[in-house]
């Protein structure tokens, strides 16, 4: 795939120290899905337009399809797999489930990670703030209403 020399890149992934041997031209999305087997992060448009590959880098939502793995060196990356708490879904994930915030499910990991980034920064967002935070995440099923309700529920402490 490349004549670029590989180098060891160290970063935190879902709270644990990780080292990967990777060339400079490999995207974070490919490292997560292909090298590390974390397929929860989805490849959607693959061009920075849909938000399906949203992950958190140092707590901020970023697009894994526009981010090179080497950029993550020394930073903290979180994926949908990292939200699980003791083998159970997080409150935010449960809210998506209970509120039917997910239908086909393809956009859901990106939606959840964008929402997780919002709730950490702003634990009690308005509906307008939720919509602004999800402005880069496209869903072709739900019409977004149930997604916004799920995030409101999670912020209120339900379910």
């Amino acid at each position: 795939m490349s004549q670029t020399a590989k180098r060891v890149r160290a970063f935190r992934l879902n709270g644990r120290a990780h080292e990967v041997l990777v060339a400079d031209n490999v995207l974070l999305l490919d490292t997560l899905r292909e090298a590390l087997g974390l397929t929860g992060t989805k490849r959607g448009c693959d061009g920075g337009e849909c938000g399906a590959c949203t992950v958190l880098i140092d707590g901020t939502p970023r697009l894994a399809c526009l981010t090179r793995t080497e950029e993550c060196e020394g930073h903290g990356v979180e994926t949908i797999e990292g939200l699980v708490e003791n083998g159970r879904m997080s409150r935010l994930q449960r809210a998506f489930h209970e509120r039917l915030g997910t239908q086909c499910g393809y956009c859901t990991p990106g939606m959840v990670m964008a929402a997780e980034g919002l709730l950490r920064r702003n634990p009690d967002p308005s509906a307008a703030e939720i919509r602004a935070a999800l402005a880069g995440n496209i869903c072709r099923c739900t019409g977004y209403v149930k997604i916004v309700e799920a995030i409101e529920d999670a912020a209120r402490g339900a379910p």
């Binding site: 920075g48 938000g51 949203t54 901020t60 970023r62 697009l63 964008a114 980034g117 602004a132 880069g136």
Partner: peptide, 9 residues
């Protein structure tokens, strides 16, 4: 510009 994840980068 773009959406939040674009502006963060």
């Amino acid at each position: 510009v773009g959406a939040p994840a674009h502006r963060a980068a």
